[in-house]
Every structure is written in C-alpha cells, then in structure tokens.
C-alpha cells in the first residue's frame, strides 16, 4: 500500500487535501447585481493549471468554504478567475472582496468538459443563468483552438438583460465570424432588442449537424433537462451530450459524502457527466 504522503493532495504540495493555500484578489468586476468575477493570483507564485469545467474550493477566513467553478482562460496559468454569485454567506463574503484581499483556495477538482472528444464535431454550448461561468473556459478554449472544431455555437438563456454574465464578452463573441452566439431572456422591457423566451427555443433553431454535434450544458437542472430533451429530439446522441451538476460539497475529494447522487460522487465523478450515464438518475426525485 502506498502511504498517504505520496498521494497528490492540495496544490502547493500540502499533504492534506483539505488544506488550501493563499491567493490574492487582483481584480474584481461586477457582472450583475449579485454576481462578481474575481481574478486571483497565488501568493506563493506557483502556476495553477486546470481543465475547463473544473472547480476550486474557496475559503474565506473565518467564514467558510464553497465550491466555485473556474471561469477563466485555461491557457492562463497565473491568473485564476472565478465568477461568484452571492447566494450564501461564503459566496456573499467572496463577492464583497476587494482588490488586495486574500482568500485561500484548493483545487482544481472534478471531471472537465470533453474538449478533446468535442474535436471534429459541431460544438453547442448551452448556458442558463450563471451556468455560463463554468462553460466559459471551454468556450475560450474552443475559440483559441477554433480549427479543431466544426461549428461553434453558444446559446445563452438568462433571466433578464441585466442578469446576463460577461455581457461585453458575449457581444464580442457574437461579432466573431467564426462562431454563432444567440441569447434569450425570460423577461425584458421594450428596450431589449434581443430574444425573449426560453433557451430551448434557441436549441430548436440553432444550425448544427445533429449527427456530428457534441453539446455541453450548464444551468439549473430543469433547464438542462429540457435542453437535453430538445437536443435528443433534434437527433443529437445522448452520449454526446454533457451536463454539469451541482450538489452540496464540503470536501471535493470524496470524503464528506455530501455530493452523492446515486452512486456518483459529484466532486470526483462529475461535476461534468455524460448524459447517457446519468439519465436514470435524473428520473428519480430527491435522489
């Protein structure tokens, strides 16, 4: 048996995978009324590698720790980017951070988006609400490696125009000739010139070749279920549809038990799951 000390633990070489290392906030941007993006740089200067779709555990001194997916560019090994919505005391404390403040962080954790499997396919990213944040690294990766993919399509549903994440960047993506971006909101005032309606309507109309399409979906579970439904109705195979799940997590390393979903530990077996492998779990309530 190997000893515990040989096992990869937290980044920075600490033996205990529960122990984080300090990072400093170098930039804070307001995305929406309750969602902020923080740029973080490791105090020890060591680079931080991650794959799109992975998450970190962010600790706020004396307040607690929460799992937050990484929303930055996977090619940038020094600046770690997290987009955080203030929904609890820890996420609210993170959102209240200012430039120069310190957090502690461990990760990255979890199974990433299938960026390699997606090569050669039309790639459809379907995001709902803050679900665009965990997809952003995969989208950035697809743009940076554009020639490896067929069509690149981003479909984004938000609550209202004011609730859209990365609004300027989404506009910039929309301006690229190499990809298609469409957005829709659930409700809008008369000034909004974009679409109003559910995101499944975008899925219904998007132009991709279902036989050669890989889809990555992140958003509320209900939105993901209906998006999967629309994709399969259009002929996308269930084994080329991927979703990112959210469950309570206290450890992210398989020890705490909280994130179990059927036999899956969402922290280690997910958060990204291939749909055909978890479709049976989706059917059971309160699982």
């Amino acid at each position: 048996m190997r000893t515990a000390g040989e096992r990869p633990g937290a980044p920075g070489g600490s033996a205990d995978p529960m122990v984080p290392r300090p990072f400093r906030v170098t930039r804070r941007r307001r995305e929406t009324a309750d969602t902020f993006t923080l740029d973080l740089v490791a105090e020890d200067g060591k680079p931080f590698a991650f794959a799109p779709g992975q998450f970190n555990m962010l600790y706020v001194h004396g307040v607690g720790e929460v799992p937050i997916s990484i929303s930055g560019d996977p090619a940038d090994g020094t600046r770690l980017v997290h987009t955080i919505r203030a929904v609890g005391k820890v996420s609210a404390a993170l959102c209240a951070m200012k430039r120069g403040d310190l957090v502690a962080l461990r990760g990255p954790y979890g199974k990433p988006w299938p960026t390699v499997e997606a090569e050669g396919h039309d790639v459809v990213f379907i995001a709902g609400g803050v679900g665009l944040a965990p997809l952003r690294p995969a989208i950035v990766h697809a743009i940076a490696n554009r020639h490896r993919f067929g069509k690149v399509i981003v479909l984004y549903g938000a609550r209202s125009p004011a609730d859209m994440l990365f609004a300027e960047e989404v506009q910039r993506w929309r301006g690229l000739f190499s990809m298609e971006v469409d957005a829709t909101v659930d409700r809008a005032g008369p000034d909004w010139l974009g679409r109003v309606g559910v995101v499944t309507k975008l899925v219904e109309r998007a132009e991709f070749d279902p036989a050669h399409t890989l889809a990555m979906i992140c958003g509320p579970e209900v939105m993901m279920r209906f998006s999967v439904e629309m994709l399969t109705r259009r002929g996308v195979a269930e084994d080329r549809i991927y979703v990112s799940m959210e469950r309570n997590m206290k450890c992210a390393v398989g020890f705490c038990g909280h994130c179990q979903w059927g036999s899956a530990f969402v922290c280690r077996d997910g958060p990204v799951f291939r749909h055909d492998r978890i479709a049976h779990l989706n059917a059971i309530r309160e699982l």
């Binding site: 309750d34 919505r85 203030a86 929904v87 709902g128 609400g129 803050v130 549903g157 938000a158 609550r159 609730d163 659930d186 409700r187 309606g197 559910v198 499944t200 309507k201 219904e204 958003g219 509320p220 209900v222 939105m223 209906f226």
Partner: peptide, 18 residues
Amino acid sequence: SRRLLGARLQLLDLYAAE
C-alpha cells in the same frame, strides 16, 4: 404546447437567486 411549456419554464424563474 411548446409555448405553454416555455411559459411554464419562464414562470419557474429558474435563473433567479433564491
């Protein structure tokens, strides 16, 4: 039927913070 489903999903206000 599709618009009714869409309306229901919008009614759920899925993306709202609790």
